[in-house]
Design a protein around this nucleic acid. Structure first.
Length: 429
DNA sequence: CGCATTTGACCTGCGC
DNA sequence: GCGCAGGTCAAATGCG
């Protein structure tokens, strides 16, 4: 328990240090942006340079996933100014690597803090800079109207809609061209102002496959871990798509997609993702890109077997360079594996979410049942697993996962403390 | 009775 | 400008 306390203190200090470094880097960076801005106003011919400087600025903290050498140079030269700042950016790069390389889908549990964060993060900026950035975005948006990224989830599902933990209200239905099955339109009703919508449609080729397409970002606390996981999964996938798009944009369009989308909550959501990772063990990602339509990334949970190794394919055709890049990342596995995950996914939302049973078992914002659930899902456990396996896995979770140990220690402390207090009170009485 | 769903009308963007 | 398709609205309807 003492160790747990020390660890908590250590982590707090570490977090404070990261926040300081991050703010230092931002200050320095926007100084440079301002200088660049002055240069560009002197030269009216280099509009593209303005766009690129904006592009670089908005990529910070997220990923320098770009092929443009000059941008890399700008970023790296700035980083040399501050080693600690470099460390801060490295966090972003690592995160990106996780998204691209290992295809971890990060688990965000504090997405509802995004608007506040956004306000806080930008509040220190000189109003002039903010104004410039905002008007710049408006301009580029007008020039190049950006459609929201969509994330489509294909899963075998018997029910009319997939249980994703959120509350939805149906507001329309339409038969779309090329598919006799009607498409249903839902909007999130957890918060009246929530912009998130989803479309649900059965696959024309296989009606057992349900295609759920999500659009937008929740602006409220999500009701359960399942919803949070879903939201962060789709958000991460959308961010991946948008980030990927930034590396293959046409010259002169460089800022249109990226700047417009990085100002949304997703940018901060990604930034808020620290260490909790949620695995999609058996899934396939691909994106379909149609000019002037919504960039869509598809998360296919119905894939057929081929290889357990992740594949990353760029599928942009030389004849057609879309505004949004095309990419696919496959994690193909057996159908049964996929289904076990989907079943776990769907069933979890139906489990009673009884916090009282868990009591004070919590670790910061993340309840320990979430950690455990996350761990269980990483292990691809399903209700079909035997009790022994479950116990075995729980034991492993306790012995292997330091977070779990820490949470358990904290919980035990609170229980013992509470008992001591009660006992003390009884003795006094 | 209140809330969710249904469904035809309407709006908007795009291609021709 | 027109038609088409996707998306949304809102009155009507259904249900607990």
């Amino acid at each position: 328990m003492g160790e747990a306390r020390e660890e908590n203190q250590r982590l707090k200090k570490y977090l404070d240090q990261i926040m300081k470094d991050y703010q230092n880097l931002q200050m320095k960076f926007f100084d440079i942006v301002q200088k660049d801005g002055r240069k560009t106003t002197n030269n009216t011919n280099n509009h593209q340079e303005i766009e690129e400087s904006e592009f670089v600025s908005l990529s910070l903290g997220r990923v320098a996933h770009d092929t443009k050498e000059d941008q890399k140079t700008v970023v790296s030269s700035k980083l040399k100014e501050d080693d600690q700042a470099k460390e801060t950016l490295t966090l972003g790069l690592d995160r990106k690597f996780e998204l691209y390389g290992q295809m971890k889908v990060t688990y965000a549990y504090n997405s509802f803090e995004e608007p506040k964060k956004e306000a806080r993060e930008t509040s220190w900026l000189p109003s002039k800079v903010l104004k410039t950035m905002q008007s710049g975005d408006d301009e580029t948006q007008q020039q190049n109207p950006v459609k929201k990224a969509r994330v489509s989830v294909r899963a075998r599902c018997e029910t009319p809609t997939m249980n994703d933990g959120c509350r939805w209200r149906k507001y329309g239905q339409k038969v779309a061209k090329g598919n006799p099955c009607p498409r249903a339109y839902y909007r999130c009703t957890v918060s009246p102002s929530c912009p998130v919508r989803k479309q649900v449609q059965r696959c024309a080729e296989d009606i057992s496959i349900l295609i759920t397409t999500y659009e937008g970002t929740h602006n409220h606390p999500l009701p359960c871990m399942l919803a949070t996981t879903m939201a962060s999964t789709t958000s991460a996938a959308a961010s991946m798509l948008l980030s990927e798009s930034s590396s293959s944009q046409l010259p002169g369009h460089s800022s249109s997609v990226t700047t417009a989308n990085l100002h949304g909550p997703d940018f901060y959501k990604l930034d808020s993702l620290k260490s909790e990772h949620f695995y999609l063990p058996n899934s396939s990602f691909s994106s379909s890109v149609v000019p002037n339509s919504h960039p869509t990334i598809t998360l296919d949970l119905t894939s057929s077997p081929s290889s357990s190794l992740p594949r990353f394919n760029k599928v942009s055709s030389p004849e057609y360079r879309p505004r949004y890049s095309s990419a696919s990342l496959n994690f193909n596995s057996s159908y049964s594996d996929s289904m076990s995950w989907v079943n776990g996914f769907l069933n979890y939302g139906r489990q009673p979410y009884n916090k009282k049973q868990i009591g004070n078992l919590s670790m910061g914002r993340q309840p320990v049942e979430d950690i455990y659930q996350s761990y269980m899902q990483k292990k691809d456990l399903t209700p079909q697993h035997s009790l022994l396996e479950t116990i075995d896995t729980a034991t492993k979770a306790i012995t292997v996962d330091e977070r779990f140990q820490s949470a358990l220690a904290t919980a035990l402390t609170s229980i013992i403390d509470a008992r001591d207090i009660a006992a003390g009170g009884a003795q006094r009485n």
